[in-house]
Design a protein around this nucleic acid. Structure first.
Length: 613
DNA sequence: TTAGGGTTAG
């Protein structure tokens, strides 16, 4: 029966047999999944089949232009329209321009409009807004403002959609201040009546730039006005809170919207599912999925892909493959993103050959790999230190009609440094720049760290000084490089000042940055400073984890601060973190040296118990 | 007007 539901779409999508074979191979013989719906694992909710969705509306809108599939078709239709007697209505022209936007021919929209003006063909607010949208999609929102001049000149009345479109363009170009200036002006001077879409656009723009709290404040402002918060604006903030790792706050907001009678949709649920997956809160995930089913809100390709990705990232690829199977049963076809997640899952487990088979299978069933697919595999080979295979795959990319991007290049660079091929890295770095790939903040971090790790201190420092002068975001660069590198080369003052600078520019050091700095201070014998920084770390809500605690204990032990090490070690044990082998052996050595054998004997069972746990 | 994927750092 299930096999039947599989077969239906296969006719349109090519040969699925390789995928079935692949599932069989990956599922460790659980091919029964293909034959019975009842075999869905009990840990998943009983997904019901999604009803087919009618897309009639779009078809009706574009019926007259359904034969316009290319630029040539559009040019022909445009010339036919302009020659027609009497001149067709503005609606006809607007529809054609909409089709052009769908074909991503934005500059042609601008040219068509120019010609319309020359020929004296009338236009309206709808057409002018399409032109503004085209400028925005071309990345020239400022030209959109010049279209506002056309509104004034021709006496056409603009509306809220015109400004929402312009606003979206400004946010897309990261021109937040301009966008907010425009928003304030529109509100203050009552230029147009603000609607939910306008608020949604501004809130989305703010969230994407990391200003979630401002977006939340806007949501509260909406509650006082005429345009009340709807499902979309709540979903925007719920999603942003999840991405800011504030899943608890996101869940509260989600409950609030339900209390107020605003129904969450599949996007709201999916954002939360994704958020809870990332925090391993599987009970919450299951509860949300069950609730969706109960409310007839069907998980879609995005929802399933999020689950697949979450399982893969946790190393649970078999579970991910099961989700993939359920997804297919329910009529949601995995796409390139879903398969990439599966490939990454196998790569993370070092099963690069299986990942490669997934790539071949997706091609066989007609899902075209993208540059992400190749980057995942290249990274897989690099992590296995199989640089020749990685380079081979890198050379294959153009043959597949794709272009390596900055991530591909950075991955290769990192791989080359990792195996100590410094000269190759340098050559590759030059080549990639010649090919037009400017190093981004990741690439710079990889270069600096690669040099430091391979003992090329002077080269690292000279590169750093060069970038320090050129780049505005040098502090992020240091952050990305890992300031431990600067400790290792005895540049303590420099490292410490950089750490302070991170604070002053509003960057929040994470647990790794704190721990390497504390460790560095300890090794330099600056234990008081290290302790002060530990206090600062806790004050800033940055919690110690297992690896960090061990690293800091190492720092204390290496500077012979046994008491401090013991205090911290006791705390580690109380918190349930095991002390690692290196920490333990260092501790034992020191305790024996200072004649604390009996104390050690007393401590050992406790440490051992915790370690086992 | 809203959602999914890849590179660095202990």
């Amino acid at each position: 029966m299930l096999f039947h539901s599989w077969r239906k779409p296969l006719c349109n999508r090519g040969n699925f047999f390789p995928l079935i074979q692949l599932f069989a191979a990956l599922s460790h013989g659980h091919v029964a999944m293909f034959h019975s719906c009842a075999s869905i694992p009990s840990k998943y909710p009983s997904f019901r089949k999604k009803p087919s969705v009618s897309k009639k509306r779009k078809v009706v809108i574009f019926r007259e232009f359904r034969d316009v599939n290319s630029l040539n078709d559009a040019v022909c239709v445009f010339h036919r329209l302009v020659r027609k007697e009497p001149v067709p209505s503005v609606v006809e022209f607007a529809k054609l321009l909409r089709v052009m936007i769908n074909l991503k021919e934005y500059s042609v929209v601008v040219s068509f409009f120019g010609e319309m003006r020359k020929l004296g063909i009338p236009f309206d607010d709808y057409i002018l807004t399409i032109v503004i949208n085209s400028f925005c999609l071309l990345g020239c929102a400022e030209n959109g403002f010049s279209v506002l001049g056309v509104f004034f000149k021709s006496g056409v009345q603009f509306n809220v959609v015109t400004f929402s479109t312009l606003m979206r363009g400004l946010f897309e170009q990261n021109k937040i201040q301009d966008a907010l200036w425009l928003f304030r002006k529109l509100v203050k001077e009552k230029i147009c009546k603000m609607d939910e879409v306008m608020f949604g656009t501004v809130m989305n723009g703010l969230c994407k730039q990391g200003h979630t709290q401002t977006a939340l404040s806007l949501l509260r402002i909406m509650e006082q006005g005429d345009a009340k918060p709807n499902t979309v604006v709540y979903s925007i903030v719920v999603d942003a809170l999840c991405k800011d790792q504030m899943v608890g706050a996101a869940f509260n907001l989600f409950n609030e919207m339900k209390r107020k009678g605003i129904t969450p949709n599949v996007l709201t649920y999916s954002s939360l599912v994704d958020g809870f997956c990332k925090f391993d809160q599987w009970e919450k995930v299951r509860m949300l999925l069950d609730e969706m089913m109960y409310l007839n809100i069907f998980p879609n390709m995005h929802t399933f892909s999020m689950l697949v990705d979450a399982f893969c990232k946790k190393g649970m690829v078999e579970d991910a493959v099961e989700v993939l199977q359920i997804m297919v049963q329910k009529g949601e076809h995995p796409d390139v993103v879903t398969f990439n997640a599966i490939m990454e899952g196998y790569c993370l487990r070092g099963e690069i050959d299986v990942a490669r088979r997934v790539l071949d299978s997706m091609i066989d069933i007609g899902v075209k790999p993208d540059i992400f697919s190749y980057n995942i595999l290249v990274n897989g080979y690099c992590k296995q230190k199989k640089l020749d295979e990685a380079m081979h795959l890198y050379c294959e990319i153009p043959q597949k009609g794709l272009k390596p991007d900055i991530v591909t290049c950075s991955t290769i660079l990192q791989g080359l440094f990792e195996v100590g091929r410094v000269e190759c890295s340098e050559n590759f770095f030059t080549e990639m720049q010649n090919a037009g790939h400017s190093p981004d903040i990741y690439t710079c971090g990889i270069m600096l760290h690669g040099y430091l790790k391979n003992g090329h201190v002077e080269k690292a420092m000279s590169l750093f000084h060069r970038w320090e002068k050129q780049k505005e975001d040098t502090y992020i660069l240091i952050y990305n490089t890992g300031n431990d590198g600067f400790f290792k080369i005895q540049k303590l003052d420099r490292a410490r000042s950089i750490f302070d600078k991170l604070y002053s520019v509003g960057l929040h050091p994470d647990v790794i940055r704190y721990s390497v700095t504390v460790n560095g201070l300890c090794i330099e014998g600056l234990v008081d400073e290290a302790k002060e920084l530990l206090r600062k770390m806790e004050d800033n809500g940055c919690l110690l984890d297992n690896a960090t605690s061990n690293l800091i204990v190492h720092g204390f032990l290496k500077s012979n601060k046994t008491n401090e090490a013991m205090t911290l070690l006791k705390e580690i044990i109380q918190r349930g973190f095991p002390a690692d082998k290196v920490t333990m052996s260092l501790l034992i050595e020191l305790l024996l040296l200072i004649g604390e054998g009996p104390f050690l004997l007393n401590m050992m069972p406790k440490l051992h118990l915790r370690s086992e746990k």
